[in-house]
Design a protein around this nucleic acid. Structure first.
Length: 328
DNA sequence: GCTAACGTCCGCCAAT
DNA sequence: AGATTGGCGGACGTTA
């Protein structure tokens, strides 16, 4: 978070391993996300909730705008159940040894260890990611893989849960990871309700691949935007890749290439995402049966809708409706 | 949950 | 010479 990294922990807190005290910009969001999810008092709602502390080695400036003011030091990490390392500047050099050691000690003591954004570099330095799947901000994924060759870096996802080790992509993906942890600990209903309070999606489909490529080409030389609009108008119909290709006068193979370059996903996956979005809308705002919604969204059968919906959103359509119908 | 048929995706390579 | 395209095949995903 600061110059070199920091941790937040449950029943411990946040610590930032500032190597020195040079103010840097950025990373304030990565600290704020766990604070919002784990740190706010929610005893009126879920009890017991997390016992949350921010730990930092010293009084460190971070984000260029804030200064930590905590009496909790890195030594407290060893007592934590969960340690969260928000982010880490200076990924070209080794993170501070005391920070790395504190994180490793916490893991050895049985804590779950999670990272947001470049916090993965601290976990990697501690050897916690060796032989494991991990992710980080897509801009730094290649660097992480190169610097720590034993880490199986996956640049396309929002977060990865390896049980006792969790890593997430850049900045806002930290929210997704924190919600995932809540989902693991307290169940989908609590996680969804919390997401509503934070006014964020309970589960974001598509991974971070969609943010790597430009969402819509600046110059739409291949007419992709037009095609997407055309397809959205016809979602209820059983569109195939061949149909889309024909619409753009491209071969299916070539459309696939342009499509991924422009949107970050494949044609079918994009169609599925659009259909599920519409299904969500219909579940929230109508009383139509799942069968009927499956037809209206082009998902075909209710079985098909239930399968894709559950996988993408994290809950079955019926449960989703119970949680979100008519409630704003 | 299983299977069989069909569709999609992607590396490869030749043609443009 | 280099970039783009389209076809092919096999692995994988989806549907019924």
């Amino acid at each position: 978070v600061f110059d070199a990294g920091s941790q937040l922990q449950r029943s411990g807190g946040e610590a930032n391993g500032g190597a020195g005290e040079r103010a840097r910009r950025g990373a304030s969001f990565e600290v704020a996300a766990p604070c919002e999810v784990f740190g706010l008092a929610r005893a009126d709602w879920v009890d017991p909730w997390y016992d949350f502390t921010v730990c930092a080695p010293t009084n460190v400036r971070f984000g260029g705008w804030f200064r930590t003011d905590t009496s909790h030091g890195l030594d407290e990490l060893a007592a934590a159940d969960i340690v969260i390392v928000p982010a880490c500047h200076h990924i070209d050099i080794d993170p501070p040894a005391d920070l790395v050691e504190a994180v490793r000690a916490a893991h050895d003591a049985g804590a779950r260890v999670a990272s947001i954004c470049t916090g993965a570099f601290v976990l990697a330095a501690a050897g916690l990611l060796d032989g494991r799947r991990a992710t980080t901000h897509w801009m730094h994924a290649a660097h992480l893989a190169q610097r720590y060759p034993n880490v199986l870096v996956e640049p396309d996802v929002l977060y990865i849960d390896e049980g006792d080790i969790l890593t997430s992509a850049g900045t806002a993906a930290g929210i997704d990871l924190c919600l995932h942890i809540v989902r693991t600990d307290y169940g989908t209903a609590v996680a969804n309700d919390l997401a509503r309070r934070l006014v964020t999606p309970p589960h974001r489909p598509g991974g971070q691949a969609q943010f790597i490529a430009r969402p819509v080409p600046d110059t739409d030389e291949s007419g992709l935007a037009e095609l997407l609009a055309w397809a959205i108008d016809r979602l209820a119909q059983p569109l195939t890749v061949a149909d889309l290709a024909h619409q753009t006068n491209m071969s299916p193979r070539n459309l696939g290439r342009h499509f991924t370059a422009a949107t970050g996903t494949t044609p079918l996956q994009w169609l599925l995402t659009q259909r599920i979005n519409r299904a969500q809308e219909l579940l929230e705002t109508t009383d139509h049966s799942v069968e009927h919604i499956a037809e209206r969204t082009g998902m075909g059968t209710a079985t098909s809708l239930r399968r894709h919906f559950h996988r993408a959103i994290g809950v079955p359509p019926d449960a989703y409706r119970r949680t979100f119908h008519q409630r704003c």
